[in-house]
Design a protein around this nucleic acid. Structure first.
Length: 333
DNA sequence: GGTCCACAGGAAAGATAGGGTC
DNA sequence: GACCCTATCTTTCCTGTGGACC
């Protein structure tokens, strides 16, 4: 049934992208100066998860490389690399810099100096989840570096810009902002049709079943492809020649659990304990949450640290906070 | 209106971990 | 092996805010 499993993976880069022509054109225009040996405009891609921001960035970059094969690039996820040091380290690795990079023994300034000294081919940096950076000053350093251009990806413009100092805000004020909206049902259905065409045998799923998946995904392409992937595997394992509606209906909650589990796996042990308490309690005040957390772990972190954890978990929609100050209650998302 | 208390979040200092140097 | 250096993690201290109570 599955002829090419890669097509059903999140990181698959399709040969053609539909329903994002305007966004691709805008990003292409921002990157166009690279074709003439100049720096590109800094481009911001904003929008909720699953609307194709990372995909469009990578797709547009691949098209650019067809024109300018020498352009170098690096994709960095700032959730995994949230310090300036680790971003610089990844950037230099991307350049294949011969400098010995050790986690604890290479001064950040030295890494920055090496990057500034870079005089090779144009270097395009994609910083995904850029709002997760602990220190935004690295953006200023990259902005002012020769031969380096940036594509910055985040969910909400206001959440990102509130973290920038005046110097960065004024520099980035005129940058190109590209807003991504959720896919409409026909668009999502069409995206799924392409994936079916590229990765599944003909006739295994009907059009109305794709619409059912698209409807359940509510504009989120990542979720829609996840449901399709889960359904295809379930059908294949059951030995069925086609994907039944029943299998799709079963896959919808499974996919939600899978996506949630992916986010959960990124949490530390203390963060997972906090999440478990919130899920068990259904809704819990900060004080009670901290008391329960202290009872459950051998070496509890400080309440301030727990607030940091909760802030991060809220950002990733694992928990929800309702009310302010003393009326604050945490709920599972 | 004044006071207390719970809470959020910024800033700075301390603790820790891991690789380098001698 | 002891010490140094540095990034990262964590704690402490602090300020501001707003609800509850008198």
């Amino acid at each position: 049934m599955i002829t090419d499993a890669r097509v059903l993976q999140d990181e698959f880069l399709p040969p053609e992208v539909e329903h994002r022509d305007q966004e691709i054109n805008e990003l292409s225009r921002a990157l166009q100066p690279i074709e003439y040996g100049e720096s590109a405009e800094t481009a911001f891609l904003f929008g909720p998860s699953g609307v194709g921001k990372s995909c469009i960035a990578r797709f547009t970059l691949s098209k650019l490389r067809e024109e300018v094969s020498t352009v170098r690039y690096e994709y960095i996820n700032c959730w995994q690399n949230h310090s300036s040091f680790s971003v610089l380290r990844e950037l230099l690795r991307g350049l294949g810099d011969s400098i010995e990079i050790h986690r604890q023994s290479t001064p950040k300034d030295l890494l920055l100096e090496r990057l500034r000294e870079y005089e090779g081919e144009h270097y395009l940096v994609i910083l995904d989840e850029v709002d997760q950076l602990e220190n935004m000053s690295i953006l200023y350093e990259l902005y002012t570096s020769q031969n380096i251009s940036m594509i910055l990806i985040a969910n909400r413009e206001e959440d990102l810009f509130i973290q920038l100092d005046e110097r960065l805000q004024s520099r980035l004020h005129s940058s190109r902002r590209i807003m991504f909206k959720r896919y409409h049902l026909p668009e999502l259905t069409s995206i799924l049709s392409d994936r079916v065409r590229w990765g599944l045998e003909e006739g295994v799923i009907k059009q109305d079943q794709l619409e059912l998946i698209a409807d359940a995904a509510a504009g989120d392409a990542r979720k829609a492809i996840g449901i399709l992937r889960s359904s295809a595997w379930m059908a294949q394992e059951s030995g069925s020649g086609t994907i039944s509606t029943e299998i799709i209906r079963d896959s919808i909650p499974d996919t939600e659990v899978e996506l949630r589990q992916k986010n959960r796996d990124r949490l530390t042990s203390d963060q997972q304990t906090l999440l478990s308490i919130i899920e068990e309690e259904g809704g819990v005040s900060p004080g009670t949450l901290y008391d329960l957390y202290c009872e459950r772990v051998d070496e509890p972190k400080s309440d301030r640290m727990v607030r940091n954890y909760l802030s991060k978990m809220r950002h990733y929609n694992l928990v929800e906070a309702k009310g302010e100050k003393r009326s604050r209650v945490y709920y599972p998302s």
